[in-house]
């Protein structure tokens, strides 16, 4: 690649040593004297690179190692092994120039002071990041405009709704105009409208400032809307790195056929449908949905059209969150063999 990547991970690994003890009073008493510990491999040799301006979705089920990886990249954790570079720096050295170039937004944690207006907290970040006042005013007003915050920033933060607060949190995290954004579940707990607004903002921000974004989210809609490329980790290891569409192709083994019958067909009971594919509709209205193996989709569609009085028929890819769910549901060994096969 001719463009120097902004983020590079090379075989990054993190092992936590955690105390373990059996339940019960005796075990608890024993652990006061000698703590037994166990090693948990949170991230097990992950490598990838991210080019400037890319928005990458970083996916994995709970406990897959996403947040641990993000924390290492943001300089909060020392890795157990391997190396990483962000903006040319080793993150955990916490060089101040590096820290001025990044930001970390966590949907489940907030940094704004609770009892005072967000505007006052913004001023604190200006001072910490040493943003020149003129530039600060410009950036601040731009962010207020983009996120539609003008009526919110003057109220004590505790009076804001969750979504409003999150928008203020995001603005506070961007006042120093970072070029690398680590967004950890930025839309957590927000309603659909607010999720959409935050998504639109992230896209606009990245375009306007050429910022690189690494985003984790449990809402596939976030990922579909923002990320062309996704990186999937599972059990601490890299499972997939590529286009979102390629992910669907690779991991989805089925398609969904939706059809409507022009007239009632009495002999088509559950067993009869099963000959075509798996019924996945709720059976309440006239729409019938069948899950069929991808490879046989064309043949089954042909048979359906030939044998039944069909008034309407569509074939769809399996929805992305269903695909992801299937991927995450696989136990570790299955994934390993799948890796080996492909």
């Amino acid at each position: 690649m001719s463009i120097e990547p902004v983020i590079t991970l090379n075989n990054l690994r993190k092992v936590y040593t955690v105390p373990v003890r059996e339940g019960g009073l005796r075990a608890a008493a024993r652990s006061l004297i000698a703590r037994e510990t166990r090693d948990i491999v949170a991230v097990n040799g992950v490598s990838f690179t991210v080019a400037p301006g890319e928005i990458v979705g970083f996916l994995g089920p709970n406990g897959a190692g996403k947040t641990t990886t993000l924390k290492m990249l943001a300089g909060l954790l020392h890795p157990s092994d391997g190396s990483a570079r962000v903006l040319g720096y080793e993150p955990w050295q916490r060089n101040h120039d590096f820290l001025r170039g990044i930001t970390l937004v966590m949907g489940n944690r907030n940094q704004l002071a609770w009892d005072i207006p967000a505007l006052d907290s913004f001023d604190l970040n200006r001072a910490v990041y040493r943003v020149p006042r003129a530039q600060y005013m410009r950036t601040r007003d731009e962010l207020i405009e983009m996120l539609d915050l003008s009526t919110l920033v003057n109220q004590p933060v505790r009076n804001l709704s969750l979504g409003e607060r999150m928008k203020c949190e995001i603005a506070a995290s961007l006042l120093h105009s970072p070029s690398v954004l680590f967004l950890d579940e930025p839309t957590l707990g927000l309603d659909v409208t607010m999720q959409r607004r935050i998504r639109a903002f992230v896209r606009a921000y990245s375009q306007q400032y050429g910022a690189t974004v690494l985003l984790t989210s449990h809402y596939m809609a976030d990922v579909e809307a923002l990320c062309k490329r996704v990186i999937v980790i599972h059990h601490g290891a890299l499972l997939f790195d590529g286009d979102l569409t390629a992910l669907v192709d690779r991991f989805s083994s089925s398609k969904t056929i939706s059809l409507q019958l022009g007239e009632a067909v009495p002999h088509m009971d559950q067993a009869a449908w099963a000959a075509f594919g798996e019924r996945i509709d709720d059976g309440e209205d006239s729409l019938i949905r069948l899950r069929v193996p991808k490879a046989q989709c064309a043949a089954i569609t042909g048979r359906l059209l030939a044998t039944l009085p069909i008034s309407d028929l569509t074939v769809e890819e399996t929805p992305i969150d269903q695909v992801i769910e299937e991927v995450f549901a696989q136990p570790q060994t299955d994934i390993a063999t799948q890796e080996a096969r492909t």
């Binding site: 943001a74 909060l76 101040h96 820290l99 930001t103 970390l104 944690r109 940094q111 910490v128 040493r130």
Partner: peptide
């Protein structure tokens, strides 16, 4: 305890001072 120290540690300033 709450993990919000993360925000302090990602600031370009001496964390002890902050």
């Amino acid at each position: 305890h709450k993990g919000t120290l993360d925000f302090t540690l990602t600031k370009p300033e001496d964390a002890q001072l902050l």
